[in-house]
Design a protein around this nucleic acid. Sequence first.
DNA 1: ACATAAAATGTAAGCGCTTACATTTATATC
DNA 2: GATATAAATGTAAGCGCTTACATTTTATGT
Lengths: 334, 334
Amino acid sequence: MATIYEVSKLAGVSLATVSRVMNNNTNVSDATRKKVTVAMTQLGYRPNSIAQSLASNCSNSVGLLVSELQGPFYGPMMSGIETAFRKQSKHVIIAAGHSDEEREQQAIEFLISRNCDGLILHVEAISDDYLIELSKGKTPFVLINRYIRELASRCIILNNVKGGYLAAKHVLEQGHTNIAYISGPLWKQDAQDRLAGHKQALAEHNISFNEQLLYQGDFMEDSGTAGFQHLYNGNSKFTALICANDEMATGAMASARESSLILPEQLSIMGYDNVFFTRHVYPPLSTVNYPINEMGQMAANWILSEVYKKTTPALQTLFEPELVVRQSIITNPQ
Amino acid sequence: MATIYEVSKLAGVSLATVSRVMNNNTNVSDATRKKVTVAMTQLGYRPNSIAQSLASNCSNSVGLLVSELQGPFYGPMMSGIETAFRKQSKHVIIAAGHSDEEREQQAIEFLISRNCDGLILHVEAISDDYLIELSKGKTPFVLINRYIRELASRCIILNNVKGGYLAAKHVLEQGHTNIAYISGPLWKQDAQDRLAGHKQALAEHNISFNEQLLYQGDFMEDSGTAGFQHLYNGNSKFTALICANDEMATGAMASARESSLILPEQLSIMGYDNVFFTRHVYPPLSTVNYPINEMGQMAANWILSEVYKKTTPALQTLFEPELVVRQSIITNPQ
DNA sequence: ACATAAAATGTAAGCGCTTACATTTATATC
DNA sequence: GATATAAATGTAAGCGCTTACATTTTATGT
């Protein structure tokens, strides 16, 4: 592999000049620039990005930590991020945290030890304190789907209260009054917010929240199954079930079917996230859209702007959910 | 950030010694090793991986090129790969090729320019010739889901003929004789192979292949929709439809339902890949399992073994598909 | 106790770039 | 044409490590 030294020799200029043309430094005459580029192509020269990184103290890499590499939620997020960065010749190093405090922490340290210039973090288990501490370090990071007051400007979040509200409002407007709810784990902010929105909508319709109709799940499919069973075997009847995410809704649907319920006639179900497979589920699931792809891109823009000082579209921190009506909710149940 | 130099000073040893303890070189006495590690922790020393890479000419990074970061197929693959590598402190740089020749090529060059020690490629559009040429370069790579004779030992593939065979055989054994087929794009090897297996099973059951019942799709959902329409409006009747992947099967199901068919009673459908959402689809889709997670891990092992000279479980190049029976195929249709 | 081999440690030259600073060359001003 | 100024180019010192080779220390055999 040709090095910058050989290029400089062939072109008859100094190392510095070659470096300058690589970095588009303006102080190079057109004539020498041409000499250099010719030499480069002639040698098939490719700059060594490791050496560039060492010398410039900039690795051009950003770390991306997600809970899982698989699953319908993270794909669109990673996709938005990768696209945004590659356009700028930054590369993304991925790691999975598996919603586990220790593994998330390890992953962050791994990414930092890899000299990432910045980090995009979708963490769930790690503590606020750790992140606040981390923010004092020298690697900038942005948080997706997590709000920490002290770090507000770097938290890219969805208005989950509104989302919860929208879901419940829709179901209420279809005439349902007995509505069960499977929440996420309530120590998580987003789970709390969605539930809060839910309650708010109920209140607006003068329906009191029935604790019997609440089940706390964990955002995973199985807890949707368990949640439905629990609710179904309880004393309170319900015509609609709202789940705090689509996975749980899916689990609940399977479970409802096993209890011989006909969907959606005998039970209306609503999800949250608008993960791609909600269209495929039967009946197609009404849900709340989580613009995760856009939020990923925004996170990338944050890094591009704050770390690499690029000009980007205006940074936005709060995103709005939208109701997605499909066919899993019936009107006027009896 | 502390450097190796400061550590060496604090420990009262030379740079080389510090480097040796970092790299677990055996020629270090326990006493000095302790001195050094104490100094390290005292300074909170973290080696600069960029400098390590430059000096050792090994970046400890491997490039992973997939068609899409999203979608159900690649998630498990990336997941298997990331897990395998992080255990060995290698990091993975991801890029998406979007099944486009130019973008795949760009992505490969991007990855190489990032000094990846090795590459894991899931490419679709790029030519065999390009890959053969690439194999003469200095960056080793392994191919997933692609077979090139000249590169056979680095092609990790599924026995697609067998998979196609298994699918058709199952449907035939349930008593179907009029079976439609939506293939993938037939310029792709895997699409060809699946179809070949399909035909083989038909032949074994003495059923001649009806060209009228073949539609060439592109592995995407919409082509399943289009394919069903085409087939349904054709002259040949069929009781079962086999699709060359799950996405197309899903599209076909939606389309069949729009044509007021009751599933699975009036039409049995079979997929391929066993992508996670096939469980959620209704009726749960019978399909053929593609052990993509394992294949990803194997690709990682290949790199670990060939590039990093680690000892790994035996390398395996050919994987076998398995039939997954769920509820989308009925028995003895009339 | 001495020679010899083995183990431990040190020295210093890179790895391939960037960049502050110095120097040279071109351009403008009068 | 001499001078001041700006533009272009060169020089050389790193960036933080690894590693070949040289040197010193320790262990071994007699």
